[in-house]
Computed example of a mutant assay.
Amino acid sequence: MSNTPDCPSADALLGGLDGLLTPPFSRRGFVMTSLMTGLTLATTSVEAQVIRTDAEGLEAGEVKIPAGDGPMPGYRAMPAGEGPFPVILVIEEIFGVHEYIKDICRRLAKAGYCAVAPELYARQGDLSTMTDAKLIIRDVISKTPDAQWMADLDAAASWAVSGARGDPARIGTMGWCRGGRGVWLYAAHRRDLKAAVAWYGPVGGERTEIQPRTGTDVAAEINAPVLALYGGADTGIPVATVEAARDKAVAAGKSVELVVYPEAPHGFHADYRPSYRPAEAKDGWARALSFLKSHGVG
């Protein structure tokens, strides 16, 4: 990407996440070289209400995204046409880019977006074969450096602009669960990000050498408005912790819009799981699309 007003250099986009961005960091080969098919094996059942979005009028499918150490698998969906299209970086849950995440990309494409979901855990483990969520967290999630995530999301954004008719002036992000945590971090990392939507992403948690900062830690440093969609019945993410992150951001002059659905549990948007709550998921989706467009990503 050339260093023009509409297409700034990579160095110009890096935020001040001291302790997070410390390149060069160690890389490893890709364990996953292609995406899984179907839904994650880690779900105990597939619910009847699973949403299936067709690809009519879209360009949709698996892609290879150039990364620093080879092609990273990902999924891209966008309208058929010349573009340029606003870009949404879709950040997965802990279960990989499975059919639910792919369908979200198609839903966004139907709304006019170039949606790209990179497989951010491709180096750490093969999520297509894993059935135990606790082992996924222990063996894959906890071993994936945040700096790697940021670099891979940047690579996905660059690819969307150069190879998928994405608009460099209209880049946003949306993530679920652990991906919601990534939304907070990426909003503090990328200076030209226009808007970010975090679905029930943890804002606290243990700090480690490779995951040194939490969502609350970086809340005062976000570069884009954040829409935070959370469940009041989420037993793993107390609403008070999200309110504290929001208040920290607002005190620093940043914009965070927090919406709490009082009766919704964690995972209320995940239509393939028993946690799915159709009314709250539908309302949150409508709010997310409206939020993106109101902040220049649409």
Rank of each mutant, 00 (worst) to 15 (best):
D18V: 13
P212Q: 05
H295W: 06
L108H: 01
L17V: 00
A187I: 02
P24K: 00
V239P: 03
V31M: 10
S45Y: 01
A115H: 06
P225I: 03
G204A: 14
V197L: 04
V256W: 00
A224C: 09
M36W: 02
E206D: 13
F30E: 07
A12G: 01
V97E: 10
L21F: 10
S2V: 12
T144N: 13
T131K: 15
P86W: 13
G57P: 13
I210S: 14
I237Y: 01
A196C: 05
I136W: 11
G29L: 07
Y272K: 05
G29N: 09
G179M: 06
T216D: 06
E221D: 13
G15D: 05
D69W: 07
G163P: 05
I171E: 02
M150H: 13
P262T: 07
C114Y: 08
Y230H: 12
L127A: 12
D283W: 00
A198M: 00
L108C: 04
L35A: 09
H266F: 04
C177Y: 07
A187G: 00
H189F: 15
L41Y: 02
S142T: 14
L127I: 11
A60G: 08
K134Y: 07
L120P: 05
D152L: 08
A156W: 05
T241Q: 13
G166W: 11
R191N: 04
T131P: 03
P73M: 12
R106K: 15
H266Y: 05
A157W: 09
A281N: 06
Y100N: 14
R191P: 04
W149V: 14
A55G: 11
P23A: 06
T33F: 11
A164Y: 07
G112Q: 08
K134H: 11
V226I: 15
A48T: 07
E119H: 13
P66E: 07
P212L: 03
Q49H: 14
Y100C: 05
D11I: 04
D11C: 01
Y100E: 12
A133G: 04
A224G: 07
Q211K: 15
T214Y: 00
A12P: 00
L153S: 06
A77S: 15
A111W: 02
V242G: 00
L227Q: 00
E257D: 15
K134S: 14
A251W: 03
V90D: 03
V87K: 11
R76K: 12
V259E: 13
R52F: 06
A195V: 10
L127K: 08
E62A: 15
S255D: 14
D192R: 13
L41V: 03
G253H: 06
C114K: 06
G253P: 00
P274W: 02
G236W: 09
G215W: 04
D132A: 13
G182H: 07
S290H: 10
A115Q: 05
R170Q: 15
F291G: 02
G201S: 03
V242K: 02
L289F: 02
L58K: 08
